[in-house]
Amino acid sequence: MTLPPVLQAQLRDLVAHEGNPRAAMLESLRLVQAAEGWVSDDRIPQIAAELGVTPAELDATASFYSLIFRRPVGRTVILLCDGASCGLNGADAIRDALMSRLGIGYGQTTPDGRFTLINSACVGGCDRAPAAVIGPDRTLVGPLTADTLNAVLEEAP
């Protein structure tokens, strides 16, 4: 599938704005991910061609960053904190509850394409431990309990 014209135009603007094709690499990946949720293998050479860099150069950047998704993700991405403060406040129990409820492990997506679960540390919500950031707006939720967790999952698209 070729790049949608809107994205193509945005990428061109980006290169024009940055003035340097390499400088636009990371932003271009974010742009495509914002539009499509992730950056597919097909997109890498397409974006690279738009920028005037090689697919290798672009993928070197893409594969480095943890929040550039190179595999498809669900409509709602849950970044569950497994950091120390959350760990000290019951993060493991929340993790277990979440995994059994969704039936997936870290790095996996529910078969209905609704949720992707990723472990993260820390999410900058230590005062609300155990915490997670959820959804396209990366909303901070916490302290998570079995109840608040259910509410959050139900609200998700």
Partner: peptide, 11 residues
């Protein structure tokens, strides 16, 4: 960037 575990001040 504030990704240090335990840090949430810059947020």
């Amino acid at each position: 960037d504030e990704m240090e575990p335990g840090a949430f001040k810059d947020r």
